[in-house]
């Protein structure tokens, strides 16, 4: 249970913890030191560099890290979990083409500009969300058809609510 698969920034890294000062990153042996300065802050020395780091959140294998002021989202699985994940994703025939767009912040749905079934282009505004006294256009990330609109004009919504789906 000392081998892990980490996904970050569209890359996959294989990590093996050998002992408390040696690890293997993608097959390369590295020296490290890790010092917990308090509950959430860690000084990591990797080879000849120090990284001032914090674990900001950690749930369901999604770790949010702050390293030298840069925030990084990392998905982590043990090698066993990774094997299970590979098996499931190969057997499941999921429809990947449906893209759901979530609200990036809480706000008020001011105006819905596209109707269900309408063709939309990448970058085209689908609805206007008012937050922080500004009108923010929520755009479609892809070309396609508006498959579902989950909100109505005038509704106040929370962050991360699914607004609409495009296919």
């Amino acid at each position: 249970m000392n081998e892990f698969v980490v996904r970050l920034n569209n890359k996959i890294k294989n990590i093996k913890i050998i002992d408390d000062s040696t690890a293997e990153i993608d097959g390369v042996i590295v020296k490290y030191q890790s010092v917990n300065t308090d509950e959430k802050n860690i000084l990591l020395k990797l080879n000849d560099k120090i990284f001032e780091s914090s674990i900001l959140s950690n749930s369901n294998g999604e770790v949010v890290l702050s390293i030298n002021g840069v925030s990084i989202l990392a998905n982590i699985k043990s090698s066993l979990e990774e094997k299970a994940f590979q098996l499931i994703s190969h057997s499941k025939n999921v429809d990947n083409s449906l893209i759901e767009i979530k609200s990036p912040m809480p706000g008020l749905v001011l105006k819905i500009k596209k109707q269900k079934g309408e063709a939309i282009k990448k970058g085209e505004a689908v609805l206007i969300l008012e937050a922080m006294k500004m009108e923010n256009e929520i755009k479609s990330p892809v070309d396609g058809t508006l498959k579902e609109m989950y909100v109505k004009e005038g509704t106040a919504i929370e962050k991360n609510i699914i607004l609409f789906a495009v296919k």
């Binding site: 249970m1 000392n2 892990f4 980490v6 970050l8 920034n9 890359k11 890294k13 990590i15 913890i17 690890a23 990153i25 590295v30 490290y32 890790s34 860690i42 990591l44 990797l46 080879n47 560099k49 990284f51 780091s53 674990i55 950690n58 770790v63 890290l65 390293i67 030298n68 840069v70 990084i72 990392a74 982590i76 043990s78």
Partner: peptide
């Protein structure tokens, strides 16, 4: 927005160490 290889390695190692300590 490409992080340096060092930073990515550090991030991956931190995530792994965190999970390793928990287990």
């Amino acid at each position: 927005e490409n992080y340096s290889a060092d930073l990515e390695n550090a991030a991956a190692l931190l995530a792994a160490l965190n999970k390793f300590k928990k287990s």
